[in-house]
């Protein structure tokens, strides 16, 4: 691969793909009520990936790239696009679910007065934590509720939980005993 212009396009493709992903997601969030929904994140990520593939393919066609160049460019750019997408998903997920980010927002809103631990607890007690999470898990079809009972439904969070537990074991990190019961 000799054209430096083509190389620059290949390099910029994952960044442009991520810009498309974010732009679509921002428009989606402003236009619909399903804000930060898992499906919207996946849909916008796929749009960004498609743009990245088109840009990379166009640049490779233009400079008559060899098979090795095609394999190398697609491997690197796919890894970058998935990495960008994962970082973006983590950012959105933190905004929606992180208690630590919520605490920072509450303290910041209170300004120089600060906030005591009890005031924070009153504002957001453990029951709220559970209720909000159950609603989200139901919306994401990971659990279903019949009456007062919750039952397993989806496989995505369960698989993630199992993978994380395995990684914790490999990395010798403590596992909360309650989860094992």
């Amino acid at each position: 691969m000799k054209s430096s212009n083509a190389l620059m396009v290949i390099m910029a493709a994952p960044i442009i793909g991520q810009i498309i992903n974010t732009t679509f997601h921002v428009i989606w969030n402003h236009a619909t009520k399903a804000k930060g929904h898992l499906g919207s994140i996946i849909f916008c990520f796929l749009m960004g990936w498609l743009v990245q593939i088109l840009l990379t393919s166009g640049a490779l066609f233009q400079c008559n790239a060899s098979t090795n160049d095609w394999v190398g460019a697609f491997t690197l750019n796919s890894a970058s696009t998935i990495g960008f997408g994962y970082c973006y998903f983590t950012f959105v997920n933190l905004l929606k679910t992180s208690l630590r980010i919520r605490i920072l927002a509450e303290i910041e809103q209170n300004g120089s007065q600060g906030m005591t631990a009890n005031a924070l607890r009153r504002l957001y007690d453990a029951k709220d934590v559970t209720t909000m999470r159950i609603i989200r898990l139901r919306n994401w079809r990971q659990v279903k509720q019949w009456g007062d009972n919750l039952y397993p439904e989806g496989w995505a969070f369960l698989t993630l939980g199992r993978v994380l537990r395995l990684l914790k074991t490999i990395m010798s990190l403590p596992i909360t005993p309650k989860i094992l019961t």
Partner: peptide
Amino acid sequence: PSLVLVMAVYARREKGLSLNEA
């Protein structure tokens, strides 16, 4: 907490996990 809940619900399977237990 979400994963803790999902794992606990799955551990109970068809018996289900009550909201109180959650």
